[in-house]
Amino acid sequence: MRLLTLLALVLLGLSAQAAEKLKVVTSIPDLADLSRRIGGDRVEVQSICKGLENPHFVSVKPSHLVAMSRADVFVQVGLSLEVAFVPGLLENCGNARIQPGRPGFINASDGFAAIDIPGQVDRKLGDVHPQGNPHMNLSVEGGAVMAANILKGLCAIDPAHKADYEARHAAWTRELEAAQQRWKKLGEGWKGRKVCVYHQEHAYLIRGYGLVTLGSVEPQPGIPPTPASLASLIATLRKEKDVCLLAVAWARRSELEEVRNQAGVTLVELPNMCAGLPGTESWIEMMDLLHKRLAEAFGPQKGT
């Protein structure tokens, strides 16, 4: 009898502990990874967007709506990255806890210095983002900012476990610092290397390492190429040597192949978010792979 009572108490205790977990929903898997790292066993995390998708065009599924309606915390990148699906989900989920301005809403780009902020917002500029390039999750500096905002948000909504969150954040930061040393070493010879892009998601890396962008398959962000714009790009690239074409999984393969074959550039497939390509389950792993592929494409001997 005592044994049964003890077992029941243990089960009740485990159940209560499980019930106390914060339900965290993130817009992209990068934020899910950071939330897990900082939240540890205090959080249950689900990402809406999958690692190979284009975060500008995510299709909402029923499970996303249900998850948002039950969430204690919602984490987004912001900078209008998720404008295609987050505002609709927030409005329809009916969950007051995670609405903007509430403690359960975390904007992971808060405090990040975005680049390419347009002086004038106009559709002539394409699918332009008024607050600047939103792909800060692919910036070397972006991880620290996202993690800091997640830490701040979790501590605010669950102050009882603040010390746990801070300890995990500190451990992750140490990993990040080691990774940044690796990335810095890899990128030392990249300044001046020539690239062409499909979309603008790697703009932070390009600027950070001093790469030279010769053109973009999308003539403007989010605008598919026309035959004329492709011909012009190919003509430009043909005049250059050792150009890498940077693209992600959702980019249209036919256009990438056309540019590669006609302009003679090297196609480099890079991760867009973590948990997409193999070996990118964490944000740091994803950035590792990104640097590794760039290093392989540029080649150590070609560095200037």
Binding site: P62, V66, A67
Partner: peptide, 10 residues
Amino acid sequence: HWFSANDTTA
């Protein structure tokens, strides 16, 4: 009005 029938159904 909407409600969730389970984790994946609304």
